[in-house]
């Protein structure tokens, strides 16, 4: 390495370091103002708690589902075989089958529960992907690269929550109104909930959380002890889907 090369490398490294700090300061600072309980020092870990009682107050309400599917260009294929869904409902006795029993409260048994990707601490889908097309970000969001996915569907086999959908056919003709701010997907790739990372980047709450009039969904940073999310988890009894599998879901449910 000659002097000229050394200067180049050293200069770039320095610029990188300061640039990174500036970025951290800017983005972290901006986040802290709008999202409750976010600190700069610790890495954020996004999580969500679903208040199952509040969620069931308005019968037949699909506000969160509609909001999510609208902004993410999720097609409406109207077929259980080919359908794509990021957030949907299933009855309590299916979602929490291991908790349900013959004499459990009738109202609870048939209650429709919101389900979505759990953004697991140990995501099995990430482990099995042969192309790293799905990965876990530092803030815990399990992401998808629709351009790298080869459509082998190993992640779908590995997900214990059925959170992933495959584009069995071209989704575009089945999107009612295309949102130009979010990519549509192509045939033959897997997709799922992204915890609205594109909105978080703009300091906005996930679309489902925002859309819920009953305030049944609470989103926040699990690493921030003073967040509303942590307050709820600290004061109420909460459960997770299939905790025995060791995936450590970051979507919690309060009864």
């Amino acid at each position: 390495m000659n002097r000229r090369e050394f200067l180049k490398v050293a200069g770039l490294s320095l610029a990188g370091l300061t640039g990174w700090q500036t970025f951290n300061l800017l983005s972290g600072g901006a986040f802290a103002k709008s999202l409750p309980g976010v600190q700069n020092s610790v890495q954020k870990q996004w999580g969500m708690v679903v208040n199952m009682e509040a969620c069931s107050r308005k019968a037949g309400c699909n506000d969160c589902i509609d909001a999510c599917h609208r902004i993410h260009n999720v097609p409406d294929l109207n077929s259980p075989k080919d359908e794509v869904k990021w957030i949907w409902t299933a009855s309590y006795d299916k979602v929490f089958a291991e908790q349900d029993h013959a004499f459990s409260n009738k109202g609870l048994k048939n209650r429709q529960i919101i389900v979505l990707c759990n953004h697991c601490e140990n995501p099995p889908c990430v482990k099995v992907c042969p192309t790293k097309a799905t990965w876990k970000r530092e803030d815990g969001i399990v992401m998808m690269d629709y351009h790298r996915c080869i459509g082998c569907r190993y992640c779908m086999a590995a997900c214990p929550y059925g959170a992933r959908s495959f584009n069995w056919k071209n989704p575009r003709p089945f999107i009612k109104e295309i949102n130009q701010d979010f990519p549509t997907r192509t045939t033959g790739v897997v997709e799922k909930c992204n915890f609205c990372e594109e909105r978080l980047a703009k300091n906005l709450l996930p679309a489902c959380v925002e859309a819920c009039e009953e305030k049944a969904l609470t989103f926040g940073d699990l690493n921030a002890a003073d967040s509303e999310l942590r307050r709820i988890l600290n004061t109420k009894f909460s459960i997770q889907r299939k905790p025995h599998l060791g995936t450590q879901p970051k979507v919690y449910y309060t009864v």
Partner: peptide
């Protein structure tokens, strides 16, 4: 049979471009 099962067969070489030792499918290849 693996190949025809892929949704995006044109991208099959991503398995080699982004080798993923945690994936058994990678090792199977």
């Amino acid at each position: 049979f693996i190949f025809v099962d892929l949704g995006q067969p044109a991208r099959v070489f991503n398995i080699i471009l982004y080798p993923s030792p945690t994936s058994l499918l990678f090792w199977d290849m």
